[in-house]
Every structure is written in structure tokens, then in C-alpha cells.
Simulated assay, not measured.
Amino acid sequence: MSEYFEVILRSIASFGLLLIGTRILGKQTISKMTMFDFVAAISLGAIAANIAFNTSIKSNHAALAFVVYIIIIFMMALISLKSRKGRKLFAGDPTIVIEKGKILDKNMKKMRYTLDYLNQQLREKDVFNIEEVLFAIIETNGTLTVLKKPQFRNVNRQDLMIPITPEFKLPIELIMDGEVIKENLEHNNLTELWLKMELNKRNLVQRDVLYAVLSANGNMYVNTYDNHIHSPIDKE
């Protein structure tokens, strides 16, 4: 019974260490990973797993190894931040696979990157005709970045000379799950009285509202608990 209790405690401890380590290393650890991030994540996961269930390994030794890995990864991240050469060493360089509309087969062979996979990633970018592509680059995290030829790019407001309303702030969440987010009101010089008046204009009170957000253009989106949709499409 004591062994089961030990595994439970070690599992909780390893999860805590993994969470703390991820917080220290930052969001980059859980974003689309470079080769360095991949190796780091695999190593940390393996050590955390051993802390959890491998009772033949002393927990303090495994915890020490985990801390050492965190320090190594953190130091490498600092080097990458300060040095361009360091970034190239740990993450590598992006690779161009299409240049001026021409497929660079030699670059693809170096990466063991097939035409089938290239076409798949182009389709994921809504490109079904390779003739539309001016440049395509494989980034260090494995994703494909595509620059279309000018004639195939989407038209925007600037191209059409359509006037736009400037926006200088992000949307502000005011109510979530029926609760007023007071911090957001205070940080944006808004009051609960103002919010109450805005809801009154819509014949609503706070308890009716599931979610409310003030957009950058000043419009407020409000979603109530009763959405008056009696037959939802995804109803099981």
C-alpha cells in the first residue's frame, strides 16, 4: 500500500515540477516547436514520467535532473535571445522551397521533404494551384509560409481606397459566465453603473448575460443565457 501512496505523491510532485518548469520557460514551450523545443519537451516529459512511477530512481535525484534540464534550456533560450548565431545553432534556418514560382528540389531533398507534403501544406494555406505561389518557406518550426504572386493576393481596404475607422485597443471583456470583470472596467475607466445602463438599453440585467464584450470600435456584443434558439444544430 505504501508503494501506491508513494507513486501518487511522486505523480503529484512530477506534475507540479512540469507545470513550474513550463511556466519558467514560457509560452514558447507549448507553441509550435523548433527542433530544440522538441528535444527539450521530450526530455522534460521523460524525466517527469520517471519521477512519477519509477520508484527505483530516488525522487530527489530525478528532481535534480529535472532542475538541471530546466536550467540548461533556460540558458539556451537566453543565448538564443542575445545571439543570432545562437538562434541559428539551436533552431536552424528557414528553408526556401519555392522561389519566384520555381520549386527548389535540392532544398527539398536536403530536408527529405516530398512534393506530396508540399502540396498538402499549400492546400492548408488555401493554395490549390502552385502557379499562384511566388515564395514558399519552411520555417524552423516546420510550418509553411506562403507569399502569393501579386495578382493572386486578396484585395484589402487600402487597395480599394476605402476609408477605415482607426482602432487603438483590443476588445474588452465586460461579463463572462454572468460575472462582471471589474478589473477590465477599472483598467479602461469604465464603471459598473455605465455597464448597467448599457444593459438597460437592451432591456437586460446582469443575471441574463452569459458574455459581453466591448469591441475596439465601441460596439458592445451581448450574448444572453436564453438565446431563443430552440433547436440547436448540434443538439444531441
Rank of each mutant, 00 (worst) to 15 (best):
I181Y: 02
N200L: 14
E167A: 14
T165C: 06
L160I: 06
T140S: 04
E183T: 12
I162T: 12
I181M: 12
E198G: 03
W194E: 09
K148V: 02
M176W: 00
A136P: 05
I175K: 04
V155L: 11
I172K: 09
L170V: 10
R153L: 04
T145N: 13
F168T: 14
E179Y: 00
D177Q: 07
L147F: 11
L144H: 05
M161E: 10
N200C: 03
N203W: 04
K201D: 13
P150F: 08
G178T: 00
K149H: 01
D159F: 04
E183D: 15
V180S: 02
I137F: 07
E186V: 11
P150Q: 13
K182G: 00
E167W: 01
K149C: 03
K169P: 03
E183K: 12
L147E: 01
M197G: 01
N141M: 06
L204D: 12
N141Y: 01
L199P: 11
V180A: 03
K148I: 02
I138V: 15
D177Y: 01
K148E: 08
F168I: 10
G178S: 04
E192H: 01
I164G: 10
K196C: 04
E139P: 09
Q151E: 15
N156F: 02
I175F: 06
E186Y: 00
V155H: 00
L199W: 09
V155K: 09
N188P: 06
V180F: 02
D177F: 01
K149F: 01
I172V: 15
K169A: 14
I164F: 00
N141G: 05
R157N: 14
V155P: 00
N200F: 08
T140M: 10
P163K: 07
K196Q: 13
I172Y: 07
I181S: 04
K201Q: 15
P171M: 08
N200V: 06
T140D: 03
T165Q: 15
N189Q: 10
V146R: 02
M176L: 09
P163M: 03
L195P: 04
K196W: 00
E198T: 05
T140Y: 09
I164K: 13
G142M: 08
T143I: 04
I162N: 08
L174S: 12
